[in-house]
Design a protein around this nucleic acid. Sequence first.
DNA 1: ACGGTGCATTAACTTAGGTTAATTAAGGAT
DNA 2: ATCCTTAATTAACCTAAGTTAATGCACCGT
Lengths: 184, 184
Amino acid sequence: MDKYQELLSNVIDQNKLPTLNYKAGDVLFHQGIVESKLFWIKSGLVKLVFIQPDGKEFVKAFLAENDLSGSLMSVVFHKPSPYACICIEACEVIAIPYKKIRDWSEKNPQLKDVELQFMQQLTARKEEREYQFLCLTPQQRYETFKVQYPHIFKRISQAELALFLGITPVALCRINARLQALVE
Amino acid sequence: MDKYQELLSNVIDQNKLPTLNYKAGDVLFHQGIVESKLFWIKSGLVKLVFIQPDGKEFVKAFLAENDLSGSLMSVVFHKPSPYACICIEACEVIAIPYKKIRDWSEKNPQLKDVELQFMQQLTARKEEREYQFLCLTPQQRYETFKVQYPHIFKRISQAELALFLGITPVALCRINARLQALVE
DNA sequence: ACGGTGCATTAACTTAGGTTAATTAAGGAT
DNA sequence: ATCCTTAATTAACCTAAGTTAATGCACCGT
């Protein structure tokens, strides 16, 4: 359990926050709504999705056990979240108002470093994704994902993965076929 | 002048940091090297670039007056920077060791909030870029850039912009031709 | 005026992803 | 066992980007 998880545990204990249960398909928070709570995933798997006016869906991220879900835009800047958070599997989740974390952080100034550190890690992950979109082909992104996140790879549909990689499910299927052809 | 710029000004005064002069083509920091200084651009324009082993170049960002350049990976995690910083125009720059900022922040705990805030803004910009790569076509990204950053658009070559958008200069030229055809 | 140099443009051809729709495969429910 | 649903695959066709190379254009220096 790292420093940030410790901080969250304290906030949860202090405020007696309950564990919530969701089932696959449930929505943790909606797109277009200001949601200033953070969601600590205790178990299960969720996706963050952009849904376009024309119905097209894009997957921003997959989050699983011990990940922290939420919308930076909402939580920090009080703007509507540009994406929704939807359960792929049944989930146990603890909802934490961001204000509680800020309050706790005021009373324990040394924890501001932990908050900063958390934000830095988040930024590092975004840097990686930015790099992949800019410099790698969809096929390379696919192969990288498979080796980097095998535990998530096993739990999502090919279609969901395609929408995360920025291509259509049909295109991902063709990539698979190409890779298969190389083996033979 | 916002809070973060104030913080930086204090660090600069305290340490009597000089203004450095670079000309177009000069390198502020190299790819593959640990560079734990931040570079405050007083005037001019720089680009952050990934250069691949095969010689292909990709532009991660353009930074201009009052922007802060540097590599998160290097500055925070002491890893080699995955990208270089190269001047597009002659620049006046102040180099600030990140350690100085941390020290200053220790002595002025209220400034940790400013640091956190800065990181949040940085993350917000990355979110926007992630969204654009995931959900927009190259043409849409081009049109968005033109209206969102006209002051930078005017100062870069079409080739550099193409490598920022994730396409080749030839492709961007064709997009222009398509847009032009629509007008007529 | 002349000959670079660097960009932007255009063309021809290749490759890969988008779109739509039909087909197959695999589970789940009754 | 049968039906229903969903996901994955395949095909056909269209569109756009990658690649390479030739051409055009404008600015610069001498």
